[in-house]
Design a protein around this nucleic acid. Structure first.
Length: 131
RNA sequence: ACAGCAGGACGAUCUGUCGCUGAUAUGUUUCAUAUUGGAGGAAAGUCCGGGCAACAUAGGGCACCAUAUUUCCUAACGGGAAGCUAUCUGCGAGGGUAGAGUAGCGUAACAGAAAAUAACCGCCCUCUUGUAGGGUAAGGGUGAAAAGGUGAGGUAAGAGCUCACGGGUGGCUAUGGCGACAUAGUUGCGGUACGUCUUAUGGGUUGUAAGGUUAUGUAUAUCGGCGUUAUAGGGCUGCCCGUCCGAUGCCGAGGGGUAAACCGCUAAAGCUUUAUGGCAACAUAAAGACGAGAUAAAUGACAGAUGCCAACUUGUUUGGUACAGAACCCGGCUUAUAGACCUGCUGUUUUU
């Protein structure tokens, strides 16, 4: 992986395909860091692949959902190195679910995102140690 | 100057850092680099109209739904423009609402005597003098609505009962207007509103997750042949008629699903400017510019500055900067919207 490209987030790192998403939701482990909940499962690749979901029930305007999706994506994009470093570049399928019911500002979301990624890394470490 | 009315047009800008995505070019086909494009006036609601696509063939009647003043515009519309009539509203510029027909039938709460063959009070007459009989819609009161207004004649009292003027409404004639209609004359009529109903016109259904191609390779759709059964069942929405296919078994062909990839997919009844025609909607002609195309879904995130608005403590201050995000594409309608601009007009005040 080239280090100068570490802040990018091309389409290949976004989760697509119905079967793969179904598989993620069926087998995933969860981690919570309000207002996010993350579901993840190892995917056997070098890169992690993500999706962002903002529930329509809580944000009924498409504009609000767009804003939150973009902020969340940016937060991941700028901090995804955290996860890669701690897990030796192992890849995961990850779904970020927004479970809050308010629009939050970017600095707050970024803080929570770091928190979330650290929790995932910790959980992965625990599991590998058990095995 | 302030307050307002109508129409039109706009709805932040710049810099930096890090990113996403379409196209093109180059390297070379995992990908990288460069150039360049990348949300709206409503993209929204999904309420109308159209294009496009599928539904094997053939349709007809009824039902159902929508619309309903005139002329024009438009691909089309239930939309728009300019008018007409009635009515409500504003000092005004203006704005809102309604507009086929009415023979039959139904309804008109509460209040009120009575809600459509009107007698409670009142007024008048009669004689058997009282909880009586009759006449009367001028006056009172109720109500959303009380049976054609004013004046005079008339009468026991009254009443379109009669007359004059004026109003409503139907017919006829004349004039003006493309027309709705208006004006004038003449001649009738006298029960209000809503619904039902009637008439005319239009409407097949489903929506781009339509539908097509490719790949992979397998449930029982579909097709062909044979045999059997017999009007079951099915189809271009409901019911009826017509028409068409025929349950099931065996043999052969064939291919469901997988929202996988590609096409559909963006140049369009499009936009801007000018000219001509038209009161206008709009049409015609010429010139020009720009080109979103994603698919668990790009068009951004963050920081700083500027602009605009508001507040006061008048400052290198604080706060705010709308509604809202394309999903096949157009034309409309409706709804949301901080702020700010242009044009025309109205009222008030001041000055000349």
């Amino acid at each position: 992986m080239k280090t100068e490209k570490k802040y990018s987030l091309p389409q290949s790192e976004r989760l697509r395909g119905k079967t793969r998403i179904d598989n993620l939701f069926a087998n995933a482990k969860g981690v919570l860091s309000y207002p996010y909940r993350a579901l993840f499962t190892p995917n056997g690749e070098e890169k992690s692949v993500i999706m962002v979901s903002i529930p329509k029930r809580k944000f009924k305007h498409a504009t609000d959902r767009n804003l939150l999706r973009r902020r969340t994506r940016e937060a991941y994009r700028l901090n995804k190195a955290l996860l890669a470093e701690q897990t030796a570049n192992k890849g995961f399928d990850i779904a970020f679910l927004y479970i809050g019911d308010k629009k939050e500002e970017f600095p707050y979301l970024q803080k929570k995102m770091c928190d979330l990624l650290n929790k995932i890394a910790t959980k992965v470490k625990e599991e590998t140690e058990q095995e």
